Measured scan of single mutants.
Amino acid sequence: NQASVVANQLIPISTALTLVMMRSEVVTPVGIPAEDIPRLVSMTVNRAVPLGTTLMPDMVKGYA
């Protein structure tokens, strides 16, 4: 089972991601792979991401 990136807090729309905002967790459905966390830092989300939500590729500008 692959770990995915999960929001560690509410991430408001257009917020630049930082390490403290994300954690890795094995979830269903599978989202962005946890090993991509370093790549996600400073990318922005294009929607509000509630606490505990799995980050999907279409939620992060420039990721997909």
Results as ranks from 00 to 15, higher is better:
Thr28Glu: 14
Arg23Met: 05
Val45Glu: 01
Val26Asn: 09
Val60Pro: 00
Ile32Thr: 01
Ser24Asp: 07
Met43Tyr: 10
Leu10Trp: 13
Ser42Tyr: 10
Thr28Trp: 15
Met21Lys: 02
Leu55Lys: 01
Met21Leu: 05
Thr15Pro: 00
Asn46Ser: 13
Met59Phe: 14
Ile11Lys: 00
Leu10Asp: 15
Leu40Cys: 03
Val45Pro: 02
Met59Asn: 06
Leu17Tyr: 00
Lys61Ser: 14
Pro29Thr: 05
Met21Glu: 02
Gly62Gln: 11
Ile11Met: 03
Val60Leu: 08
Gly31Tyr: 02
Ala7Gln: 01
Gln2Ile: 14
Asp36Ser: 09
Arg47Tyr: 08
Arg23Asp: 05
Arg39Trp: 09
Thr54Gly: 01
Arg23Leu: 05
Leu17Gln: 00
Asn1Ala: 15
Asn1Leu: 15
Met59Lys: 02
Met59Tyr: 14
Ala3Asp: 05
Val49Asn: 02
Val30His: 14
Arg39Thr: 15
Leu17His: 00
Leu55Glu: 01
Ile11Asp: 00
Pro29Asp: 04
Pro29Lys: 05
Gly31Asp: 00
Glu35Tyr: 09
Pro57Cys: 06
Ile13Asn: 13
Val41Cys: 05
Leu17Asn: 00
Leu55Arg: 01
Thr53His: 12
Met43Gln: 08
Pro57Arg: 09
Ala16Lys: 15
Val49Ser: 02
Ile32Gln: 01
Val41Tyr: 04
Gly31Glu: 02
Leu17Phe: 03
Ile11Val: 06
Ala3Tyr: 11
Ala48Thr: 15
Ile13Thr: 13
Ile37Ala: 07
Gln2Glu: 12
Thr44Gly: 04
Gly62Leu: 06
Leu10Ala: 15
Ser14Pro: 03
Ile13Arg: 12
Glu25Asn: 09
Gly52Ser: 06
Gly31Asn: 02
Asn46Cys: 05
Asn8Met: 06
Thr54Gln: 03
Lys61Gln: 15
Val30Lys: 10
Ser42Arg: 08
Val6Tyr: 02
Val6Ser: 01
Arg23Ser: 08
Ser4Ala: 02
Val20Arg: 14
Lys61Glu: 15
Pro50Trp: 05
Val6Cys: 04
Ile37Leu: 13
Val45Thr: 13
Thr54Asn: 02
Val41Thr: 05
Asn8His: 06
Pro38Ala: 13
Asn1Met: 15
Tyr63Glu: 03
Ser42Gln: 10
Thr44Tyr: 14
Asn46Lys: 10
Met22Asp: 01
Val30Asn: 15
Lys61Trp: 14
Thr28Ile: 11
Thr18Met: 07
Ser42Pro: 00
Arg47Pro: 03
Ile11Phe: 03
Lys61Phe: 11
Val5His: 01
Leu40Phe: 02
Val45Lys: 00
Ala3Pro: 09
Arg47Phe: 08
Ile37Gly: 04
Leu55Thr: 01
Pro12Met: 07
Met22Tyr: 02
Val5Trp: 01
Val27Asp: 01
Tyr63Thr: 03
Ala16Glu: 13
Thr53Met: 12
Arg47Glu: 10
Gly62Pro: 05
Leu40Glu: 00
Val27Ile: 06
Ser42Phe: 07
Val27Trp: 03
Ala64Ile: 15
Ile32Val: 06
Met43Pro: 00
Pro38Tyr: 08
Val20Pro: 13
Asn8Gly: 09
Ala16Leu: 09
Met43Leu: 14
Thr44Asp: 04
Ile37Ser: 04
Pro57Asp: 06
Pro50Phe: 10
Pro57Ala: 15
Val41Ser: 02
Leu51Asp: 12
Ser42Met: 09
Val5Lys: 02
Met56Asn: 05
Gly52Glu: 03
Ile37Cys: 05
Leu51Trp: 08
Val41Trp: 02
Asn1Tyr: 14
Leu40Pro: 00
Tyr63Gly: 03
Ser4Gly: 04
Ala7Asp: 01
Ile37Gln: 04
Val49Cys: 06
Ser14Phe: 14
Pro57Phe: 06
Val27Lys: 07
Ser24Pro: 12
Ala34Tyr: 06
Ala64His: 13
Pro38Thr: 15
Val5Cys: 05
Lys61Ala: 13
Arg23Ala: 08
Asp58His: 10
Asp58Phe: 12
Ala16Tyr: 09
Gly62Phe: 08
Val60Ile: 14
Val49Trp: 03
Ser24Asn: 05
Ser24Thr: 11
Ala34Asp: 07
Val26Met: 13
Val30Gln: 12
Val5Phe: 03
Gln9Tyr: 08
Thr28Val: 13
Ser24Arg: 10
Val60Cys: 03
Leu40Gly: 00
Pro57His: 07
Thr28Gly: 06
Thr54Asp: 00
Gln2Lys: 14
Tyr63Ser: 04
Leu51Asn: 14
Ile11Tyr: 01
Ser4Val: 01
Ile11Glu: 00
Val45Ser: 06
